[in-house]
């Protein structure tokens, strides 16, 4: 067959007039006009106060707030992912008690809006002046045995100290995130073929070993992309803790500058720009993370493998015919 084609003269390459796309050009024209109008407004509308905004948006308190926002993002996502994995595993456990607890947890934290949760956590100090851990009903039990000052408290701390704005905000965001992450992790775990678990079981691995070494690594491929989205959503939701209130936070600081200078609008624009910038950084990170975890699975690598296979095959058949 190869001899057949090589014997004939190769036909001239095709030179055809490409299909025109006038609609695209019209679209570009419309968009160009709209962009020009928008830029015109940005430049000419004095309410933007660009120089005032640029002066203010890099000041130390704002940078401090920015650091708080990033710290809040990292801590709440760490809590969310860690606890989320635990709750997902509980949800899939054969133990009905664990399953029930996990269900109630997800139900509660998915039902309550994050803003409400943040404010609620910020005010938990009202419930207790001190947080203490120990035997429940210790005084009552003590009274039963005639001991009137019996207390079985293991440790305790002042609630106001612990539930400062920052910790309250972090807990509200982290605990709520865990409920969403649990669902994502559960979907990831369930996406792994049942045969993987069976093969590992047949080798004599325990449930925990199978989860850690076989199932979770494969589930990561499914878990990572939505986790990237959750992280970006969380970055924006950190602004909610301004209502806890948390002062070491970007939006709170920008709002404060706005109210102090009676120029709120430029500061809202500054907030927009800061969040745009941070989100863009996260998007780049997400791109690389996804690329890393699709190794050995992705469409591109599979296509490459197929090509390699084809090349090998055609190589072997030609050598076969040559003999």
């Amino acid at each position: 067959m190869s001899a057949d084609t090589s014997g004939r003269a190769r036909p001239e390459p095709i030179k055809a007039v490409p299909v025109r796309h006038p609609g695209r050009w019209a679209g570009v024209a419309v968009i160009a006009v709209l962009v020009a109008m928008f830029v015109h407004m940005l430049v000419t509308n004095s309410a933007f106060q660009w120089s005032f905004m640029v002066d203010e948006m890099f000041r130390p308190p704002i940078i401090e707030g920015l650091r708080g926002t990033v710290l809040l993002l990292i801590t709440s996502m760490v809590i969310g992912i860690g606890l989320g994995i635990v709750i997902a595993i509980m949800r899939l456990s054969p133990n009905p008690v664990l399953r029930g607890v996990a269900w109630v947890y997800t139900w509660f934290f998915r039902a309550v809006p994050r803003l409400v949760l943040a404010i609620l956590f910020g005010n938990l100090g009202i419930l207790w002046s001190r947080l203490e851990f120990g035997l429940p009903f210790d005084r009552q039990i003590g009274a039963l045995f005639g001991l009137h000052d019996f207390e079985a408290r293991l440790f305790g701390f002042s609630a106001v100290d612990i539930l400062t704005g920052f910790v309250a905000g972090m807990l509200a965001l982290g605990l709520s995130e865990a409920a969403y992450m649990a669902e994502i992790v559960r979907a990831g775990i369930q996406s792994v073929d049942e045969g993987q678990t069976e093969a590992a079981q047949a080798l004599g691995m325990s449930r925990a070993q199978i989860l850690r070494r076989i199932v979770l690594p494969q589930a990561m491929r499914v878990i990572i992309p939505p986790t990237g989205n959750e992280t970006i959503a969380m970055l924006k939701d950190t602004s909610l803790v301004a209502f806890v209130p948390v002062s070491m936070e970007l939006f709170f600081q920008l709002k404060a500058v706005g109210s102090r200078t009676f120029q709120p609008f430029p500061m809202y624009v500054a907030a927009t720009l800061w969040y745009l910038l941070l989100t863009s950084v996260l998007l780049v990170g997400q791109y690389y993370l996804e690329r890393h975890y699709s190794k050995g699975f992705g469409r591109s690598t599979r296509a490459r493998q197929r090509l390699r296979g084809l090349a090998a095959e055609s190589g072997s058949t030609t050598s076969g015919t040559a003999q």
């Binding site: 045969g195 993987q196 093969a199 047949a202 690594p217 050995g296």
Partner: peptide, 11 residues
């Protein structure tokens, strides 16, 4: 045990 669908660990 050897399975019909191999069930090797792909990662």
């Amino acid at each position: 045990m050897v399975f019909q669908r191999f069930n090797l660990f792909p990662h």
